[in-house]
Design a protein around this nucleic acid. Structure first.
Ligand SMILES: [Mn+2]
Ligand SMILES: [Mn+2]
Length: 546
DNA sequence: ACCTTTCACACAAAA
DNA sequence: CCTGCCACTG
DNA sequence: TTTTGTGTGAAACAGTGGCAG
């Protein structure tokens, strides 16, 4: 059970983060960011606490009357101090709409009565909101409200601190809490205190800009405004190769939406700016749709010459074959990517609250198998446990804050190079089944629960690991590990649903219900299993009529 | 990498 | 009155 | 008919309280 956190834990965490960043990055911070730090330190305890509370909530606008915290003795005073010191404002420049959104339905009805606005009390809140907003245009809303509002400021400065600390903006203070509670604790690896996620300010600013672009483009896509999206395309920044992948993902997403709008040319131009999958696949499909068959084929040729990953390569092979026609001269030059996947058919009675995978799992148990629904947990998990210490080894620059689930270069091809020697050594060591078992079980016990990108603890039991290491030949495991390592980004998924054990044998089973089929990543693993004689089968389940 | 990713499933379109 | 959503909390 | 393409939704801490419906 999680233990209680010490009083004021959230402020302590916040201060820890600020100090951590100041110690390492002071020279890259702007004047505004540095004064954010010093002025925050100068606030009273209550004000600091309130600020941290506010900026860890969604907001961005809050009702002052609903802010009650046990450890903040005088909230009104703290609010006033934050406002005075520039860490908050009273929502002066907020429009009526934003403020009305803070009202409950009851508040809105009350406002209607005060202004003698006609409205049915049966209206839904959204409709009521619209009615009141309409009636309040040009009227002084503040005076009529039963509350005042507050809005934290300097959030941009705080964003910079967060980005410098985590190296991303999706992690936040909850990582501290979950770690301390023992819900998702992190490994205590050695942090490289010289490491800087951002080498220069330009890169930092460009990263922030890309985050903003990502958010903006998402909003525009969600809003369904085609014209606005087209305008955004015209004002995109240039691609900085150092942030290439980040840039490409945004561009790919916008282009995909343009495809849906049938803005083929604009979509194609956007894909041209991207150097990440699936830009070229989408381009090829798009060009064929535009009846530019030759250009489409050219793109496929490019992919075949220098594929960005296996999926893209296989797409190009199959797509070329299809659009080239049966007896085109290039046909014969295309390699085969097909494979005969072993399948069997199974008729089972559906059960409520039981997905088809669990159904087959239960069926296998009846057939005297030990069956586990593992999907992507087993092989990556075994890898994570067998290589745990290497994954968390203090490679230069790999660990720069205490909340990482793996080294920062994990998805770079450099991961293997930087650890080549210890990886080779570990491979040699675990060729002996006893050594493999002892390494895996040692880490299973000593690291249990610690966050590791490869290890999903909830799906790994000691029984499962024992059986897996007893029944799966080390040679097979090594083959699987090697393919995983050749491309972590793409090859950590697509594993079959189930693994069955009986005596000293095993069988991987991908369950397919009616209407389901192998996905491309699953196909690639099945092809590999076939090449390496790893026992894997697709089980097609159907249900009896009625 | 919840700013995701992964998987299954529904339906439409193409072959 | 109950239920589901969602934001918040530790 | 079968195969292929595309879009959708759920699940990834757990427990609680406020609020809308
Ligand atoms: Mn599955
Ligand atoms: Mn399946």
């Amino acid at each position: 059970m999680p233990e209680d956190l010490p009083a004021g834990y959230y402020l302590r965490n916040f201060t820890y983060l600020l100090n951590f960043v100041i110690e390492r990055h002071e020279e890259t911070l702007t004047v505004a960011e540095k004064s954010f730090f010093t002025e925050f330190q100068a606030l009273s305890l209550d004000a600091q606490r309130l600020y941290v509370r506010l900026c860890s909530r969604k907001g961005p606008l809050f009702r002052a009357d609903k802010l009650t915290y046990e450890d903040i003795s005088d909230t009104a005073m703290a609010v006033a101090e934050l406002v005075d010191e520039g860490f908050a404002d009273r929502g002066a420049d907020c429009d009526n709409e934003a403020i009305l959104a803070l009202c409950t339905r009851a508040d809105l009805l009350c406002l209607c009565r005060q202004n003698e606005t006609k409205s049915a009390s049966s209206l839904k809140k959204d409709q009521l909101l619209a009615v009141v907003a309409e009636a309040m245009v040009g009227l002084p809303l503040r005076a009529q409200l039963p509350f005042t509002v507050i809005q934290p400021r300097r959030l941009d400065e705080l964003r910079v601190f967060r980005l410098l600390f985590f190296g991303n903006l999706h992690q936040d203070m909850t990582d501290f809490v979950l770690h301390e509670l023992g819900v998702a604790p992190f490994e205590s690896y050695e942090i490289d205190h010289e490491a800087r996620f951002f080498t220069d300010r330009t890169l930092l600013d460009e990263t922030l800009a890309l985050y903003e672009l990502s958010e903006l483009s998402r909003e525009i896509i969600d809003s369904g405004e085609r014209e606005t999206l087209l305008q955004l395309c015209a004002s995109l920044p240039d691609r900085n190769p150092d942030l290439g992948h980040r840039y490409d993902r945004i561009v790919n997403r916008i282009a995909r939406q343009l495809e849906r709008y049938d803005c083929c040319v604009e979509a194609f131009e956007l894909y041209q700016r991207s150097s990440s999958t699936p830009a070229r696949e989408r381009s090829a499909r798009l060009l064929r749709k535009m009846e530019l068959r030759e250009t489409s084929i050219e793109i496929c040729q490019e992919v075949l010459r220098a594929p960005w990953d296996e999926a893209e390569y296989e797409f190009a092979v199959k797509f070329s074959r299809r659009i080239l026609g049966k007896d085109h001269r290039f046909q014969s030059t295309l390699p085969s990517v097909e494979s005969r996947v072993q399948t069997d058919e199974l008729v089972l009675y559906p059960e409520k609250d039981c997905n088809v995978e669990s159904l087959v799992c239960g069926w296998a148990e009846e057939q005297r198998f030990s069956a586990y629904y593992v999907e992507n947990s087993l092989f990556p998990g075994l890898f994570g446990l067998a290589f745990w210490d290497i994954i968390f080894a203090p490679v230069r620059g790999a660990f720069f804050n205490p909340f990482q689930r793996g080294p920062s270069d994990l998805f770079q091809p450099t991961f293997v190079d930087a650890r080549a020697e210890s990886i080779a050594e570990r491979y040699a060591f675990i060729q002996d089944r006893e050594n493999l078992a002892s390494t895996v079980m040692k880490h299973y016990r000593s690291k249990h629960g610690l966050a590791n990108r490869f290890v999903h603890w909830e799906a790994l039991s000691e029984d499962l690991l024992d059986l897996a290491m007893f029944c799966i030949p080390v040679q097979h495991l090594t083959f699987v590990f090697e393919r995983m390592m050749s491309d972590f980004r793409n090859n950590l998924s697509g594993f079959p649903d189930l693994i069955l054990f009986r005596d000293d044998t095993y069988q991987l089973v991908e369950v397919k219900g009616p209407g389901d089929r192998l996905q491309v990543n699953q196909q690639r693993w099945f092809r590999y299993f076939g090449e390496k004689n790893i026992p894997a089968i697709v089980t097609n389940v159907s249900y009896p009529p009625g």
